[in-house]
Amino acid sequence: MNLEWYDLVGLAGTLAILLAFLLLQAGRLAGDSLRYQLLNLFGAAGVLVSLWGSFNLSVFLLELAWVMVSLYGIARSLRARRDRAGRG
């Protein structure tokens, strides 16, 4: 097997998404935590980069949605932190 740089980025992205899910299921991360959202964002971005070598529309749409939902979650997490800091 001959892996290109984008394949390695995609594998790292896949591992990040799986790690985020494992940590969520193990109760080590909260689903609304910034770390969970960032792992998903970077993971999905990595999988998108892997499409450089061989484009797949279904995977592209799935990972694009994953990025968008992760960005939404990050915005919510940051807003909640800001609100908590403003009250304290």
Rank of each mutant, 00 (worst) to 15 (best):
D7K: 01
L8R: 14
V9N: 07
V9D: 08
G10K: 10
L11E: 09
L11H: 14
L11Q: 11
A12K: 06
T14F: 13
L15H: 14
L15P: 10
L15S: 14
L15C: 13
A16E: 10
A16H: 00
I17W: 02
I17L: 12
I17T: 12
L18F: 08
L19H: 04
L19N: 05
L19V: 13
L19W: 09
L19T: 11
A20P: 01
A20Y: 01
F21C: 05
F21Q: 14
L22Q: 04
L22E: 04
L22Y: 10
L23K: 04
L24E: 08
L24A: 12
L24I: 01
A26C: 10
A26H: 05
A26N: 03
A26W: 11
R28W: 02
A30S: 10
S33C: 03
L34I: 09
L34W: 04
L34F: 08
L34C: 02
R35H: 11
R35F: 01
Y36H: 13
Y36F: 15
Q37F: 10
Q37P: 05
L38W: 01
L39C: 06
L39K: 11
L39I: 14
L39Q: 05
N40D: 11
G46I: 11
G46C: 09
G46Y: 08
L48D: 06
L48H: 06
L48V: 15
V49I: 07
V49C: 05
S50H: 13
L51S: 02
L51K: 05
L51D: 10
G53C: 00
G53P: 03
G53L: 01
S54Q: 12
S54C: 06
